[in-house]
Design a binder for these strands. Structure first.
Lengths: 151, 151
DNA sequence: TTGAATTAGCACCTCGCCGATGCTATATTC
DNA sequence: GAATATAGCATCGGCGAGGTGCTAATTCAA
């Protein structure tokens, strides 16, 4: 639970790939084959990321995609939002305009506290950049990965 | 996206209520009526929290529930895990025993970095306690809530 | 000029899970 | 014994994630 969707997983893989190759135009097919990701799904995600402006596309033979924002400015939160839509820890963290209040909003005794947690979560997600993920520095982070997860 | 389920929302409301009333046995009905939460669903959640040992139940007339762990030791991450199951930012953060690896695990170029993010997310969720949420201190936290969310 | 390669934009479908409901059994109080 | 509450299932509807397919538009290269 609290799991990213596969679209986001594929998006992460693609965007990190594009970050590593720099300004070289890379086709969805190349990325899919190199990482063993299903091509049609990867294309869906890249189309979406093109619409949000995070990548630019080049059509036609020898076409493909190029990262359109700096990997250091492109955050995990930004990617999730582009692919999955707005992050909301609870339903009532959306704006009034989005009509994302639940019936309890007026009397809810925990809303204010939860909103604080939500804001901190968003900050957390916006502190992780694509550059961090693409060029992972084993020395960095300053904490050990639990043994069960260490592959 | 990245949204807690309603079960968790109801669980949060219930657990915070129990934290506030201390050791007084409180029925699901009382909690539901006070917070305008659907009773049957709240009961489902409380049953689950009883099974996980986070609350104790008293059967029969004048029965109800009591918090079974200290609000300062009971974390948001613990509640989510109790109600929704294990938190996994991506599928491959589960243990090998749980067989939660995807086909890319061996060659995945971003797994290590994402696992780091996952671990930090878990730490974040385990730093937020039920006490923090139940006895929200408006002065605390040290940052402002964005205007659009401030009700 | 034609064909292959590649992205753009839909429409659609399926399956799992969240959310919700209902019923029966068990325990306790009055 | 009646009323109150929890325990434990079993089930069911609806929505969204995940996945598939088709057509159009664009570009390169032989």
């Amino acid at each position: 639970m609290l799991t990213l969707t596969r679209k986001t997983e594929y998006g992460l893989i693609a965007v990190c790939h594009l970050a590593r190759v720099g300004q070289k135009v890379t086709s969805a097919r190349d990325i899919a084959e190199e990482h063993g990701v299903p091509l049609p799904l990867l294309m869906n995600v890249l189309k979406k990321l093109n619409r949000t402006g995070h990548v630019s596309s080049v059509r036609g033979a020898r076409g493909g995609y190029v990262l359109n924002v700096s990997p250091k400015k492109f955050t995990l939160g930004g990617l999730i939002e582009a692919v999955e839509g707005p992050v909301n820890l609870v339903r009532c963290t959306g704006t009034i305009k989005e009509n994302r209040r639940c019936g309890l909003t007026q009397s809810c005794t925990i809303r204010k506290a939860v909103v604080k947690v939500h804001v901190r979560l968003r900050q957390f997600l916006d502190e992780v950049t694509i550059a961090d993920l693409a060029f992972d520095d084993p020395q960095a982070a300053g904490f050990a990965i639990p043994q069960v997860l260490a592959q």
